[in-house]
C-alpha cells in the first residue's frame, strides 16, 4: 500500500511540475509585462492628459509652481474664449471640404488606375507602374517649392483647390488597391463579361463591392493624413476664409505669443477631438486600416 502510494507520487510529481511550471512562469512574465507596460502607456497618454487638464485651468494656475496638477475650478469658459478668437466654424467647413475633396478625387483616380494595372495588358505597364511608385518616394512635402511655383502660376493661391489638386493622384492608393484587385478571382470578371459587363461595368459591379475593406482602409488613412496636414496648406494659404483647422490652430499659437496656454489647449482639444472621437467609436476599423496598410 505504501509502496504503491510512493510509486504514484514519484510518477505524478514530475508531470505536475512540468505541466504547471510554464503556466506559472507565463503568468509571472505577463504580470511583469504589465508592470512595465502600464507606466509606459501612461507616459504615452500624458500629453493628452496635459492638454485636457490645461484647457480647464486658469492662466495663473499654469504658471504657478505651487498649484496642483488638477485645476481648482474647471474653467469651461476657456472653450468659448478660444473659439471666439478666430472663426473656427469656417476653418472646420474648409477642413471638411478639402479633406472630402481629396478623398473623393483620390478614390476615383486610384480605382481607375489600379484596375488598369491589375487587370489589363498594355505596352509600358511596368514603366508606368514604377512612375506611380515614384510619387510614394517623392511626395508633395519633398517637392513643395516648385509645386508652390506651379500652383501660383495656375492662380490657385489662397483657394481651396490649391490644397486639393496636388493630392488628387495617389501612387500609394493605386498600389494598395491594385493588390486587392489582384485577389479577386478572374472567373468573376469572366462571369460578369458574359453577363454583359464591359470593363467599367466589371469594375463597378464586381471589383469595387469586393474591395470595400481596402477602400475604407485607404479612406481612413487619407482622411487622417489630410485632415491633419499642416505644411502644404500653410504655404499656399494666407487668407482667413480658406484656412483649415490646423492652420487656424497654428495661427492662434503665434498670435498668443504671451502663451495663453489655457486657451490654446482648449482650441487644441477642439481641433484634435473629431478624429480622436471617430477613432474611439470605430476603433477596430481604424486599427485594421492602419494595420493592413502595411501588408501586401
Amino acid at each position: 500500500m505504501t509502496t504503491l502510494h510512493g510509486q504514484t507520487d514519484a510518477k505524478t510529481l514530475p508531470f505536475t511540475q512540468e505541466a504547471r511550471q510554464p503556466f506559472r512562469l507565463a503568468a509571472l512574465k505577463r504580470g511583469w509585462l504589465h508592470v512595465v507596460m502600464v507606466p509606459l502607456a501612461l507616459l504615452w497618454l500624458s500629453p493628452l492628459v496635459w492638454i485636457l487638464v490645461t484647457s480647464l485651468k486658469t492662466r495663473t494656475e499654469v504658471f504657478d509652481p505651487a498649484a496642483g496638477f488638477l485645476p481648482q475650478v474647471l474653467q469651461w469658459a476657456n472653450y468659448p474664449g478660444a473659439l471666439s478668437v478666430a472663426p473656427f466654424g469656417i476653418y472646420l467647413v474648409n477642413s471638411v471640404l478639402v479633406t472630402g475633396g481629396i478623398l473623393i478625387a483620390q478614390l476615383v483616380t486610384i480605382t481607375l488606375a489600379a484596375y488598369a494595372f491589375a487587370r489589363q495588358t498594355f505596352p509600358g505597364k511596368n514603366l508606368l507602374f514604377t512612375l506611380f511608385l515614384l510619387q510614394i518616394m517623392f511626395p508633395i512635402y519633398a517637392t513643395f517649392l516648385t509645386n508652390f511655383v506651379t500652383v501660383r502660376e495656375l492662380g490657385l493661391l489662397n483657394s481651396l483647390p490649391a490644397m486639393i489638386v496636388p493630392f488628387v493622384a495617389s501612387g500609394y492608393g493605386t498600389f494598395m488597391l491594385r493588390q486587392s484587385f489582384r485577389q479577386v478571382p478572374t472567373e468573376l470578371a469572366d462571369a460578369a463579361r458574359l453577363d454583359g459587363c464591359g470593363h467599367l461595368g466589371i469594375l463597378w459591379h464586381v471589383y469595387l463591392p469586393l474591395v470595400k475593406p481596402t477602400l475604407i482602409a485607404f479612406g481612413i488613412i487619407t482622411v487622417v493624413t489630410h485632415w491633419n496636414d499642416y505644411m502644404w496648406p500653410l504655404l499656399v494659404n494666407n487668407s482667413e476664409n480658406v484656412r483649415t483647422l490646423p492652420i487656424g490652430l497654428g495661427l492662434l499659437a503665434k498670435s498668443d505669443s504671451g502663451a495663453d496656454w489655457t486657451r490654446l489647449m482648449a482650441a487644441t482639444v477642439v481641433v484634435v477631438s473629431p478624429l480622436l472621437l471617430l477613432f474611439v467609436i470605430f476603433q477596430r476599423r481604424f486599427v485594421d486600416s492602419f494595420m493592413h496598410a502595411g501588408l501586401k
Binding site: 472567373e187 468573376l188 458574359l194 463591392p209 469586393l210
Partner: peptide, 12 residues
C-alpha cells in the same frame, strides 16, 4: 451562358 468551375457567383 456559362457555368464556371468555381461557379463564379458574385459574393456580394
Amino acid at each position: 451562358a456559362m457555368v464556371f468551375q468555381s461557379y463564379a457567383l458574385y459574393p456580394h
